[in-house]
Design a protein around this nucleic acid. Structure first.
Length: 537
RNA sequence: GCCCUCAUCGUCUAGAGGCCUAGGACACGGGCUUUUCACGCCUGUAACUGGGGUUCGAAUCCCCAUGAGGGCACCA
């Protein structure tokens, strides 16, 4: 039976690259009726956190990538967390130590750094080898255990890339147990993949050079290795690697631009606005470090749209899980026959390793936006309602407070004109409270005495509409409003601005109906009362 | 620097020697529709990195160059 796995390290949120790896493994297992295993690789005691692990589970669940074996959400760590398997690793580690395939090494990290620097200075690659000159043979405790890589070429067949070969002189003796007693990634993957019966390792191409190491480990342990397939990577449109740091980068850049443009804005003022200390902001601006807290504080005060990187970013931006999955699947994989929009079922039945290309792809947000809009347009109302509820669960827009009936109405009005649910949430704000009048629209449509006269005419026409206030009863009056003014439709724009705050909204008729007579008339009256000039910014 | 991998429109890709005057989608341009914005429909611009081979014939096979990416941790 086919068995694949997704093995994230819980050192942060699940990002799209990881989601794609998970998706391909899931697809492959599901396609062939195999099993999909989820394993948390938390062997880095410093960086791993329980919250990250929990977050990754949540994100996978949101994506609908269910696992047959693995952690149980909400329950404490089980045997699918590597930190719970130390005894197992030690058992095999001792075996390697006994057979002489592994040995203890005593250099400290600092000493190794010196050795590396020296090698670099001498323009030769540094490779730690058991037989190299100057190796410490005794000393520090705790020590580290290294695996002696065989001094021979390792060749293997990658299911995507074909034949890969790495010469023996390229290998070095990797650490397999750290001084804290935890196994390194290299050792833990091999042991676990074997013990968990993984048949196919589908992972990102950045792991390609690890494979000879892992293969040698399998051999030393006397095990048959799984098949390997390395997938092409995903980059940003500017060819930089997609990374969680991109968000900090965007925030830093925006803050610097703002500080440059606005002379009255100092670092301290900005910091105070963002609720952080001046020195913290100063440091953030001058280093390249990732800092999620400062980043989101800046995004909030500067009203920034940060690039979505993590799965939860996309969820908060109002993307549908199916659309995101569909899009991600198409980077580096193609089903052929010019297929683009594919249901989960179609992805599953069409998926094959043969369809995976060798070249790295770029994450084209515009295409994702289009695809998400396409999903929104094609989805039935109940699917969309569920997606909106899902969106509301992680965001805080007025849309959250919409009744079921209101939500249905909004779906009808917006589905044709949005790319994400967030756009609907943002654009529909005026249905939930007084509109924010956009100065540009006010200047354009509500600036002159003639505009004011038109607005009064509109009020008069609408005021005469007999109850009930419906699409039917409003239809003829709306026609009259459209015909008002020199140019067909201009007065409709005046009404639109009056009622929605801006020059863009769903069709006026529907908007008025949903707003109701009272609210609609109130807004027009309020505008007249305040006087048009009051809006000129 | 050393090692590994890759190379078709701006982007994702189809293409497994003749079906290719290279197809689709996004983006972009033009038009239609239209009370705004969209949606929808029609339509246009746009690519085989370069050079050598192999072959009757090459986007497809081989070699070199160039370019791009990945790796070179007690991170995964």
């Amino acid at each position: 039976m086919i068995r694949t796995r997704f093995a994230p390290s819980p050192t942060g949120y699940l990002h799209v690259g990881g989601a794609r790896t998970a998706l391909f493994n899931w697809l492959f297992a599901r396609k062939y009726g195999g099993e999909f295993v989820l394993r948390i690789e938390d062997t880095d005691q410093v960086r791993s956190t329980a919250e990250s692990a929990a977050g990754i589970l949540t994100d996978l669940q949101w994506l609908g990538l269910d696992w047959d074996k693995g952690p149980v959400p909400g329950i404490t760590k089980n045997e699918y967390f590597q930190s719970m398997r130390l005894d197992i690793y030690n058992q095999y580690l001792n075996q390697l130590l006994e057979t002489g395939a592994a040995y203890e090494a005593y250099e400290t990290p600092a000493q190794l750094a010196v050795m590396r620097a020296k090698a670099e200075k001498e323009k030769r690659p540094f490779r730690y080898r058991k037989n190299m000159a100057g190796r410490a043979t005794a000393g520090t405790d705790p020590s580290v255990v290294r695996f002696e890589m065989p001094h021979k070429t390792v060749e293997f067949n990658d299911l995507i890339l074909g034949s890969i070969s790495v010469g023996g002189e390229e290998h070095d003796d990797i650490v397999i147990r750290k001084s804290d007693g935890f196994p390194t990634y290299h050792f833990a993957v091999v042991v676990d993949d074997h013990l968990m019966g993984i048949t196919h390792v589908l992972r990102a191409q950045e792991h390609l050079m690890n494979t000879p190491k892992h293969l040698s480990l399998y051999q030393a342990l006397g095990w048959t290795p799984p098949e390997h397939a390395h997938m092409p990577l995903v980059f940003n449109m500017d060819n930089t690697k997609m990374s969680k740091r991109d968000k900090s980068k965007a925030a830093r850049h925006a803050a610097q631009m703002r500080l440059k443009q606005d002379a009255s804005l100092t670092v301290d003022v900005l910091a105070a606005k963002a609720g952080i200390t001046g020195s913290a902001l100063q440091a953030f601006l001058h280093q390249k470090q990732d800092d999620p807290i400062i980043t989101s504080a800046l995004a909030g005060t500067l009203n920034l749209q940060l690039p979505e990187i993590d799965v939860q970013d996309f969820r908060r931006s109002g993307y549908l899980a199916d659309a995101l999955l569909n899009f991600i699947a198409l980077i580096g994989w193609a089903p052929g026959e010019n297929r683009e929009i594919l249901t989960r079922e179609e992805l599953r039945s069409l998926f094959s390793l043969d369809g995976i290309g060798k070249t790295n792809g770029r994450f084209d947000r515009k295409k994702l936006l289009w695809m998400n809009g396409e999903y929104i347009r094609r989805a039935n109302t109940s699917t969309l309602t569920a997606a909106i509820a899902n969106f509301n669960a992680v965001t805080d827009f007025p849309l959250k407070h919409a009744s079921a009936a209101m939500t249905q109405n909004l779906i009808g009005m917006y589905r044709e004109r949005i790319g994400t649910i967030a756009e609907m949430a943002e654009n529909s704000r005026f249905f939930f409270g007084p509109p924010t009048y956009e100065s540009k629209s006010v200047k354009k449509y509500l600036a002159t005495a003639a505009d004011a006269a038109h607005l009064r005419q509109v009020a008069a026409i609408l005021g005469k509409v007999a109850d009930p206030w419906t699409a039917e009863s409003l239809s003829a009056p709306m026609e009259r409003i459209i015909e008002l003014g020199e140019k067909r439709g201009v007065v409709a724009q005046i009404l639109r601005v009056a009622v929605s705050g801006g020059a863009v909204s769903p069709p006026l008729l529907e908007t008025l109906v949903l707003l109701g007579k009272e609210t609609s008339m109130q807004r027009i009256a309020e505008l007249e009362r305040m006087g048009l000039a009051g809006f000129e910014a």
